[in-house]
Amino acid sequence: MARSLVLARRELRAYFDSPIAYIFLVVFLALSSYFFFFQIQGFFLVGQATMRIYFEILPYLLLFVVPALTMRLWAEERRAGTEELLLTFPVRPFEIVAGKFLAAFALVALTLLLSLPLAFQVAALGPLDWGPVVGGLLGGALLGASYLAFGMFVSSLTRNQIVAFILTLVGLLFFVSVGSTPVLARAPAGLAPFLEALDLETHFKAIARGVLDLRDLFFYLTFIGFFLYLNAAALAWRRWR
């Protein structure tokens, strides 16, 4: 685990040594604020001290920015050949995967925390129910982490960052829409509960209501663990090429 932290620190340093981290933060905050205040059903029109709209757009905002973050995680290492260095250091594949994941997650968590001032501002305008805010941030962190785990795995399959980005986006769109009403309405009856349980957004909505159900938590942790495991397995498998 200590090795993972060393790797995570290097990865974070790479984020902040290049413009990636800053662009990520600025784009995320600008877009989230824009949609929050000026969307058709935006904050000013609703006329209530609530962050509900913010957390409604959060899954979709993350959907577009997280793949931009994960696309380079492995693809860039493979392109530059540094993957060979990494894999010949005395570290287990899973430690490397965990390190990269932790670094990317730290950036996502930081971004979510930076949206807190928005909540304080809303709270200054009227009585804000903090339960959904805390729930929304926690849910956002879990959702973001799930996107990251999936995106990283996809990145490990290609050396082209654009390919990684697009495949991640398509895959994530699948995972946030598989349990949506239009899909469920057309799905075979026996399959519907299963599809709904697989949907990343369903669980987010539950947590963002301010109610933390252990089953939702368990779902996210399983999803994350599964793709991190696949990622490590892909690394090990690639040695057999």
């Binding site: 290097r10 340093r13 790479a14 040594d17 260095l85 010949t88 250091f89």
Partner: peptide
């Protein structure tokens, strides 16, 4: 891996570090 120092072909390094 602990016993070996390895210089891969074409010396891959993290250019931005």
């Amino acid at each position: 891996k602990r016993q070996i120092g390895y210089l891969p072909e074409s010396t891959p390094l993290y250019a931005e570090m």
